[in-house]
Nucleic acid binder design. Structure first.
Ligand SMILES: [Mn+2]
Ligand SMILES: [Mn+2]
Ligand SMILES: [Zn+2]
Ligand SMILES: [Zn+2]
Lengths: 125, 125
DNA sequence: TTACTTTTGCAACTAAGTTGCAGTAAGAAA
DNA sequence: TTTCTTACTGCAACTTAGTTGCAAAAGTAA
């Protein structure tokens, strides 16, 4: 179930995603907003935003959950699937708008993919 | 630093990887071996096996760490990089021996990748 | 066997994320 | 505007994966 009421928490989180090109980890958000809202609320709002197709989530290289704005998705379908890049050095993550071909694998039905490219970002190399 | 002594724990874990085609999660190993060795030992042996190039590790869709046998790697270099498949239904993970092209991304140096294809395995579909 | 050093077990800890529940506040209805 | 319903939030306690420090145990070479 997605967002039904435009609460302060929802507005706050949406504003962060709007002005942020990069992906943001749940941990970063909890830290950033620790004076404004409870971490439980953050996790729960993120869940709702995702099920509404407003953001997407994926796992970073260290097993943390990351979120970023979706483009063209809705509660009905998540179509904005793309690879992500994480810097080994500073940990930053971005969405990549490249199109990677997913091969079909015998005897398996592939529904989606999580592609994480790991290396060094511009400011760290 | 890798394995120096052939201990019982090392032998046990290596035996599991030898007879196992699929990947195994650290959690599964801890559960499987709970009567034979301490979980700390398991995590530490896995670390050593990985730095010796005998196994490789990656994150599954739920943020758990998975391990599988390496082919042709050594402590000097991990060359056996390949996509993995995880079943949404039963959670099982396999190594895929397909070759996926990693695109080069402007302003970023890509060192390696974690490609996880998610869907339904043969027995679940 | 002895001596040296790696490896292990244990217990306590850390950190990310979850759950249950009582209280608060959107927003529709009156 | 006030009332009413129920989605949403805060809090505290919990769960679970993985880590750390240290003392004891077990490889290995001499
Ligand atoms: Mn993205
Ligand atoms: Mn593999
Ligand atoms: Zn960087
Ligand atoms: Zn399956």
């Amino acid at each position: 179930m997605g967002v039904i009421r435009k609460t302060k928490s929802v507005e706050t989180l949406l504003a962060i995603f709007e002005q942020n090109k990069d992906a943001v980890s749940a941990v970063q958000l909890v830290d950033l907003l620790k004076d404004q809202m409870n971490k439980t609320t953050i996790y729960r709002v993120l869940e709702r935003l995702e099920s509404d197709g407003l953001v997407h989530s994926f796992m970073g290289k260290d097993g943390l959950k990351w979120y970023a704005t979706c483009h063209g998705c809705s509660s009905a379908q998540h179509i904005d699937i793309h690879p992500h890049f994480q810097c080994q050095h500073c940990g930053k993550v971005d969405c990549l708008s490249v199109d990677m071909k997913i091969p079909s694998i015998p005897n398996r039905k592939i529904n989606f993919s999580q592609i994480l490219l790991i290396g060094e970002c511009e400011s760290c190399s």
